[in-house]
Computed example of a mutant assay.
Amino acid sequence: MTIQQGPASADAAGDTELAERMHARLGSRHPVVAVATVTSSGERTAALGTPLTSRFEIGSITKGVTGLLYMDAVERAEVTPATTLGELLPLGECPAAGVTLASLATHTSGLPRLAPSRDVVRRSWNLMRRGTNPYGDTLDELVVGARRATVRPARYPRYSNLGFELLGHAVASAAGTDYAALLRDRIADPLGLESFAVLSGSADLTESDLMGRNSRGKIMEAWTGEAIAPAGGIRSTIGDMGDLAAALLNGSAAGMLALEPAASMSSPAVKIGAAWITLESKGRIITWHNGGTGGFCAWMGLDREAHVGVVILSATAIPVDRYGFDLLAELSEPSLPE
């Protein structure tokens, strides 16, 4: 696996102008970062401090991909929005068994953020002190945790990693496969996203896989595991993320209805589809999702009307959302060069 965190400006790959633009904005806070833009002129990619072939953790942008898989399964009539978890996973008579897939996709299921765990304090402590992966559970262990989960009344969206873990595995179960295979068969292979993968453990890491750092510069263990895969487990190169953004803009990706708003979030102006968030920014309607793991931050945004997309992947756990929104706004402005 690759551990790189050196000077960015002297180690750029891909589109030089784009690399210089992002180095000027992100500077020393994000020494290992990659950027992709999609406009009517095509795709551009650049990387600072690492090759374009490096794979990053995309964190919760994975939820957006799981949203695509869910809506694709609805279109295939494998599930319906009213299908419950108990119909697809061995949850018995627990409260989570009655939760619908539609509520999971919009974070309105009432499930907690994480599955109940007897060692959550130990995992959190080890993450902070040692940088270890807190998400190494198997699917069987996830189901055990879900059986203990309390379901609260959902008056508004309540962000739930547990909910999206269960959603992805439930959709895979409906298709008679596992999540990794479903991702490959319905998203990665049709779109040619060769780097897309979810890893079951650290043994699956390759030389192209970056190791991220937290905001204090500490190297963090990779976030791998069967359970977390649908909620935050995808790794990808910047080129494949740019290709995914292009597919979402031209409508060639499976499950495109995931991008359509289905519920309001913190205010009527902020809405959510199947994971994908829609809001107005600088006079434009933006569809987006971000991601964060122990050592990575990521952001993908789409201006679907202008047919413009931006992806930023950083191997440092410092948010890049503001830079993504700013760059997307610039590219959406017709008077500015693409």
Rank of each mutant, 00 (worst) to 15 (best):
F196W: 13
F196R: 01
F196M: 08
A197H: 10
A197E: 13
A197I: 09
V198H: 05
L199K: 12
S200I: 10
S200V: 12
S200A: 15
S200Y: 10
G201S: 13
G201A: 08
G201Q: 06
S202K: 11
A203P: 02
D204W: 02
D204N: 05
L205A: 14
T206W: 04
T206P: 03
T206Y: 07
E207S: 13
E207L: 12
S208I: 11
S208H: 14
S208N: 14
S208G: 12
S208W: 12
S208A: 15
S208Q: 14
L210R: 06
L210N: 03
L210T: 09
M211T: 14
G212Y: 03
G212R: 04
R213L: 02
N214R: 10
S215D: 15
R216I: 10
R216Y: 14
R216N: 12
G217N: 06
G217D: 07
G217Y: 11
G217C: 08
G217L: 10
K218R: 10
K218M: 03
I219C: 03
I219D: 07
M220C: 11
M220K: 05
M220V: 04
E221Q: 12
E221M: 03
E221Y: 01
A222H: 14
A222D: 11
W223Y: 02
W223H: 02
T224N: 04
G225T: 11
G225E: 04
G225F: 06
G225Q: 10
E226V: 07
E226T: 10
I228E: 01
I228D: 01
I228R: 03
P230N: 09
P230S: 05
P230G: 08
P230V: 04
P230M: 08
